[in-house]
Write a protein that binds this DNA or RNA. Sequence first.
DNA 1: CTTTTGCTCCTTTTT
DNA 2: GGAGCAAAAG
Length: 789
Amino acid sequence: MFTDLAAAADSPLLHNLNPEQRAAVTLPAGNALILAGAGSGKTRVLTTRIAWLLQTGQVSPGGILAVTFTNKAAKEMMTRLGAMLPVNVRGMWIGTFHGLCNRFLRAHWKLANLPSTFQILDTQDQLSAIKRLMKQFNVDDERFPAKQTQWFIAGAKEDGLRPRDVEARSDDDRKKVELYQLYEEQCQREGVVDFGELMLRSYELLRDNDPVREHYQRRFRHILIDEFQDTNRLQYAWIKMLSGTTAEGRFTPNDNSVIAVGDDDQSIYAFRGARVGNMADFVREFDVSHQIKLEQNYRSYSNILDSANALISHNTKRLGKNLRTDQGPGEPVRVYEATSDFAEAQWMVEEMRQLVRDGIDRKEMAVLYRSNAQSRVIETALFNAAVPYRVYGGLRFFERAEIKHALAYLRLLENKDDDTSFLRIVNFPPRGIGARSIEQLQDAARAAGRSMHDAVSAVGGKAGSNLTAFVAKIDVLREQTQGLSLREIIELVLDHSGLIEHYKADREGADRIENLEELVNAAESFVTQEGFGRDAVALPVDELRQAPASQGLDPNRPVLDEPLAPDAETGETLSPLAAFLTHAALESGDNQAQAGQDAVQLMTVHAAKGLEFDCVFITGMEEGLFPHENSMSDNASLEEERRLMYVAITRARQRLYMSHSQTRMLHGQTRYNLKSRFFDELPEGALKWLTPKNQGFTPSAFGYGGGYATTRGGAGGFSKDSFASPPVPPQKAAPSHGLRSGMQVFHNKFGEGTVTALEGSGDDARAQVNFPRHGVKWLALSVAKLTPV
DNA sequence: CTTTTGCTCCTTTTT
DNA sequence: GGAGCAAAAG
């Protein structure tokens, strides 16, 4: 360890860093903002910073708090750090916001007013809990869709608001606040917390408990936050609590150092509460003394980078940043116009085959799209061409129905009051407990103010005996699993729950059984990785010894230095089962990890953030899709779409393709789309149009009969019949209004547009029209005056 | 009580 | 086009 910083300037850690990176790594104490562009070595800077702080003795491992958004990012940080320094990374507070809050609440569950066995609700569980609640209170789900209520509650929590804090402006709002209140009571009764609650509870405990707050403020000397542009109000407030809020609730930056790393141009999560404004607030409220911009890009050639820079310069609200590269221009960005989504996929497959022939690995090719629904056509094309591919997104391992069923049994063993889990499995596998019995039980439970588990005895008759048998089974299982290893517990539960048997009887149950077996493996590797049975190593944290025991901060107990450290007094430790259930809730697991195989990667642009590939295809670049039609009306969301496109472009190292299609099947209907406005925002010099530059769908395009040119001869292997002839718009019998799909029409307000669909007849007749500047509209023909052009 | 059929709604997503 | 869910048939 270095004793003085002068000697440390030669540290091997700092080798191969550019001046900006080096400045960021060696920042003096104080609050700082690092604007890190795409591909500028952000993660490297963050981890090196931590390693540097430790190596120069400026802080001990226990004094570091590093927060990320995804488990993947946290894991990567720990791996890299472990490679740089011989340090016990697991003892450090590196993790996701939610993971760290969970750790915090597990340690202070009593102060947080939670049962020690509290369970975590994921989004699915939360929705079903809300549905159950709304049914119980006879809320009209037409007027208040459960999804909307869920959105309302999650949104309130992201803003740090409890029901009493929410300002209700309408009767509907008041009803939602009431539901929020009832939902909270239900969660508290059942001993469960949702994701937002993990954050909010932690925040409130820090806010309301002076010794706890002061303890952690003293402890965390260096706080580092990754992807700062994605933080929401509550997360920002949480950071302020940890770094200098006083008992009076005033915030003054103290001598902790907070380093926020982010890129306002890559803020793509405003729709779920992220607040880019936190960056500006941070600079102001934390008296930021240093701002560093990392603009040197090590990823892409300049044609790609120029495109990204040009595009994003159309956004008005920016902190200002321009990526540069030392690499040459590289390949031009290739643009392709297809006649249909099917043809677009065909073209892509051919292009990929050529790339493979050129020696590029399939796993270095990514297909990006705006929404998941777009993947199907592409999958079909890849499948038919026998090109291996892997789709990200969709159901993750711990979200699969059979896994959730198994977990529900396990959760009930831990926490019998978890009614969400109870309901999920009370009649699964079917055991003769129908809707009526369940309703009876729910009524009884509500009347007695108990959980469903505890209210079973109040239900008589045949229904009652089935229920009693079920509860008895759970209770027996709980007894039987005492003292067993995690693996044995799960095997026992799978066996005695009847799940395996049930799926064996099902013709299509083989996959599900396989997944259940995989659950046993997941548990097994969890146990090994988390180091159960290994002695927890407590790190010296001197501050801790001054904390008063009365506040639950036992001076002799190394609070939270190890996630699973046993309680010093009772020797009590989080059971492996409890830890595994937490793990399952917080890390929904990889999708289907067919890792290792050389396969083309398919994912949404959102999912691609943080990744990079040699070749990237951005597909479906059409008005209404990208930018998405729901985001075209107001400028703020349009700018977010543009940032999304910026993220997509900057994923590519060497080759970038963009494609759009004249027609596309969407919701079982053919749509005619114009090419994306984003094309107009790219530098013409960096582009190469593989097809004649065009408008996207126009009626005249139908007259264009020639096969489209492709870049190389080699790519022409597709059958001409499959798509070379332009699609013919559906010729429905012309109704009285005389409009047809594909027609150019004029509207007084919206100007010229293209009819893309027709529906109904007579007075109900409606037309879908795509207006270049106003987007896609449905117009009632009895009202709207449309004149053919 | 369970299975089947018909009807509705469709962003983006991590925790 | 297809998942998810509620009413109707078995």
